[in-house]
């Protein structure tokens, strides 16, 4: 199994109060699958996504992603692991404003021992894939929201990680741009064999996924 969650619980201390956004959750995801995570606000979707992406570690339980037990990794080991295995797509893109689209996409490659020529080749391939080769020299503020998100997707895939996680990637976009982004994600699964976990509030967006999970109060309530 590509992702194995067994009995994972996540709790935060807030003052003397303990919040448990995820409660003994068990879940398996296959390689090359496209999963949508749905549920009301505060149900723990982002928390689960962050655990799968190695942004955070569970309080208890077993979590294996791409053959690694990531609960054993330290903060800096997790960073190195993310650079190899994870492409994170944010709702608000989080592009670096002083870098061009090209340079933003190149960022993850700066963490790898690659020649400039090799980096150039990969950045061009990624920008091609999101159909933004002609915008390579544009800065984020010169792009539309949909284009910014496509740059962010190019940045997420440029280092060729097996798992992409996306937190409401279309939440800030108009219907047409959202549709293009969803098609792009679908294509990444179909053509490149990526595994995608996507949080969404939108049933239409969830429809492009192979599997839809519903979370409520930190627990899985339905699995379609």
């Amino acid at each position: 199994m590509f992702i194995t969650c067994q009995n994972i619980t996540k709790s935060f201390k807030k003052g003397d109060q303990i919040i448990t956004p995820l409660q003994a959750l068990t879940l398996d995801l296959e390689k090359g699958s496209f999963t949508a995570l749905m549920g009301p606000s505060g149900s723990g979707k982002t928390t689960l996504l962050n655990l799968l992406a190695g942004i955070d570690s569970p309080s208890s339980g077993r979590l294996e992603v791409a053959g690694t037990d990531i609960t054993r990794l330290s903060r800096s080991q997790l960073g190195a692991w993310r650079a190899q295995n994870i492409g994170y797509i944010f709702q608000l893109y989080h592009l670096v404003p002083v870098l061009t689209a090209y340079e933003n996409v190149e960022l993850p490659l700066l963490l790898q021992p690659l020649s400039a020529a090799e980096r150039h080749k990969r950045v061009c391939t990624a920008l091609d894939l999101v159909a933004l080769s002609d915008r390579a020299e544009h800065f984020p503020r010169q792009l539309s929201g949909g284009q910014e998100q496509r740059v962010a997707i190019a940045r997420a895939i440029v280092a060729d990680p097996p798992l992409l996680v996306a937190d409401e990637p279309t939440g800030d976009l108009d219907a047409a741009s959202a549709k293009a982004i969803l098609q792009l994600l679908r294509q990444l699964v179909n053509d490149l064999g990526k595994t995608i976990v996507m949080v969404t509030h939108d049933a239409k967006a969830a429809a492009v996924a192979d599997r839809i999970l519903h979370l409520e109060k930190g627990q899985l309530v339905s699995d379609i």
Partner: peptide, 14 residues
């Protein structure tokens, strides 16, 4: 802060 966090998420060590 957010931007630096996003760079950390990508894998840049602190």
């Amino acid at each position: 802060k957010r931007e630096l966090a996003a760079l950390q998420a990508i894998g840049f060590p602190r």
